[in-house]
């Protein structure tokens, strides 16, 4: 299937990302995509919400500042939104980067303002992940959960409720099923 043929739903990048033509990615220069990530229609990624508070280590990094860093094999479902979290600190409001590791699935309509999402995390539909939440590896967040701001969710947790609380543990056998490579491969471009 040559890329020049009829326009598909997705724009495929060199690193294998499939980005819907109907997604809204703002501030692309501040967004890192690790590759093989699927971004569906109506997904919003706010790369424009950059950190304005000075970093403690001066001259830390050259090049583009990063607002949203995304790893490999992530899947962002229709209508979800990724926003770098912001807070007032010492009298100054600033956003801070949102980091998403590998094999992270975010369900349709969910809003994510976490500081860090580890690998193999599955966030259901219509969830809200509050500001500066830290979600470690192998976590499942059930549909409709509101993860409160600043919550730390340890590995192998199942979280549900408003506010979200740990309601169960990921079973040893569920670990393998949280790999998203198959999901990525199943995404066709038509």
């Amino acid at each position: 299937m040559s890329k020049k043929s009829v326009k598909g739903e997705y724009i495929e990048t060199d690193t294998g990302n499939k980005v819907s033509r109907r997604s809204q990615i703002i501030g692309t220069t501040n967004i890192i995509l690790g590759g093989k990530t699927v971004i569906q229609a109506e997904v919003i990624i706010r790369g424009d919400l950059l950190r304005t508070y000075p970093t403690s280590t001066a001259g830390e990094k050259q090049g583009n500042p990063v607002a949203v860093a995304i790893g490999r094999y992530c899947f962002f479902s229709r209508g979800c939104e990724l926003r770098p979290p912001g807070k007032l600190y010492k009298g100054q409001f600033s956003h801070y980067p949102l980091k998403i590791t590998d094999h992270v699935f975010i369900g349709p309509g969910s809003i994510v303002e976490a500081a860090l999402i580890g690998s193999h995390v599955n966030i259901g539909a219509n969830c809200v992940v509050g500001k500066f939440a830290i979600i470690k590896d192998y976590v499942r967040i059930l549909d409709g959960t509101v993860v409160p701001p600043n919550m730390v969710i340890p590995s192998f947790s199942i979280v549900a409720g408003r506010p979200g609380r740990v309601v169960g543990e990921i079973a040893e056998g569920e670990v393998d099923g949280m790999d998203l490579r198959e999901v990525y491969r199943a995404v066709g471009n038509h």
Partner: peptide, 25 residues
């Protein structure tokens, strides 16, 4: 009240002026 995590914050007015970011709260 709701079991969400609590975070520590200062009641004092935030420091201002030069080098405010290094000033201890």
């Amino acid at each position: 009240v709701c079991i969400a995590p609590l975070s520590v914050s200062s009641l004092e007015a935030p420091p201002t002026g030069l080098g405010y970011e290094y000033a201890p709260q």
